[in-house]
Design a protein around this nucleic acid. Structure first.
Lengths: 214, 214
DNA sequence: TTAAAATATTAACACTGTTAATTATATTTG
DNA sequence: CAAATATAATTAACAGTGTTAATATTTTAA
């Protein structure tokens, strides 16, 4: 065996175990939620010692950050398809629905990506401003809002302010929904309405408002 | 000493210690954040045994819930003043600003009240639908939006949907701001703008949009 | 004063992340 | 091939966490 061959084999093994750790972390995460991700549980499931994990990730928040990144890749994949929607306002609506869909179907990921403080603090500490995965998603929104403006929508609004606003609104809807606040309010204050429709109600209002801005 | 007297003295002491526990919990919370609230630290600071706390609160999340309630009382107090603003749209704007102010100045409380899942889950489990503190705040918004509608604003929008929408948007703005996402995006995508103004930008856009709905 | 009730404590369990020191394994060199 | 070296993984330990059962202390009632 040549030197380079064994070297690459070692590298491959390192990468394999690194990925395996992430995989098990993800499994625990999806099955039992964020709080049940524990270094010891991950190690047990793989059959290694807990301290071995520290040879592959600097600490627990590093593992969590890796999950965080996976989430952003998933969202980017979902968004990528929407580039094919030509009419910009239609695309904007589709992005909104797609974002909400992602939040509902990947609840734990969404919380990791947009609600919890820890992971984004890790990004700010370790990756400063060169955080591509997060930027790409917002860039897509920015472009779509710009396209809308080019077609005559949102004339009086600033591009950046408008993009920020749309994101904040959709995120607010998702956040309140996931935390149970939306259903709680619908239950307590207008029980005649279907709880399930709380999301649609809020989203439809946004669309209605966006239309009246044009 | 009469029987009732000693009895009431005991009750008073029980309430005193119950309050003391909460007070110390709040102190830890405000000084070092949510994660540093620990039963053992609270007990140490008071000079009692950790298990004693379980005679006054059923568990840790019960202590947290008590803090949660304090937060809602604080917000309600802030909102109460705004009933004096006669013009409903002005009042709505003031409520929005006041809400944002609360979120920024009482960041930890805001996270406890509207971002973390644990406390609201405790509410849903133990208090079902009869949760007054939370309801009052939304009721205030509902009334104001209704007043706006009565004055000719938001004609085409549903009262409940509109209220939900306004809350979601403001919450989204606060949530993204507190989590650092807002500043991160402003930094990364439009560095020419002042980071500090990210909040105002988003809020002003909301007001602008609300105006164009009327 | 003694029996009963209320209050508080100690000891223990089963966890958590993380580090330093040690052992085992694989690779490279003489 | 054997010894030296570099890499990888482990054990033991520290300092925490929430929570429960059993025990001790204090206060109240008879």
């Amino acid at each position: 065996m040549s030197e380079t061959n064994t070297k690459s084999k070692r590298l491959k093994h390192k990468e394999d175990l690194r990925r395996k750790i992430l995989e098990v972390a993800k499994e625990l995460f999806l099955k039992h939620g964020y709080d049940s991700i524990s270094i010891r549980k991950i190690a047990d499931k793989i059959g290694i010692s807990p301290t071995t994990i520290y040879l592959y990730y600097q600490d627990k928040s590093d593992v969590i950050y890796a999950l965080h990144q996976e989430g952003f890749k998933m969202l980017a994949t979902q968004f990528a398809v929407l580039r094919n929607v030509e009419e910009p306002f239609e695309r904007l609506k589709a992005m909104g629905r797609s974002y909400i869909e992602f939040a509902i179907e990947n609840r734990d990921f969404y919380e990791l990506m947009f609600i919890m403080r820890e992971p984004i603090e890790f990004v700010n500490k370790n990756y400063a401003c060169e955080w591509e995965e997060g930027g790409a998603a917002f860039e897509a929104l920015l472009v779509t809002v710009a396209d809308c403006k080019a077609k005559g929508y949102f004339k009086q609004a600033d591009l950046h302010a408008m993009s920020l606003y749309v994101w904040a609104t959709i995120h607010g809807i998702c956040s309140l929904k996931l935390q149970g606040h939306l259903d709680h309010v619908v239950n307590a204050h207008f029980p005649e309405k279907e709880q399930q429709l709380s999301l649609e109600m809020a989203f439809d209002t946004l669309v209605l408002n966006l239309k009246s801005i044009q």
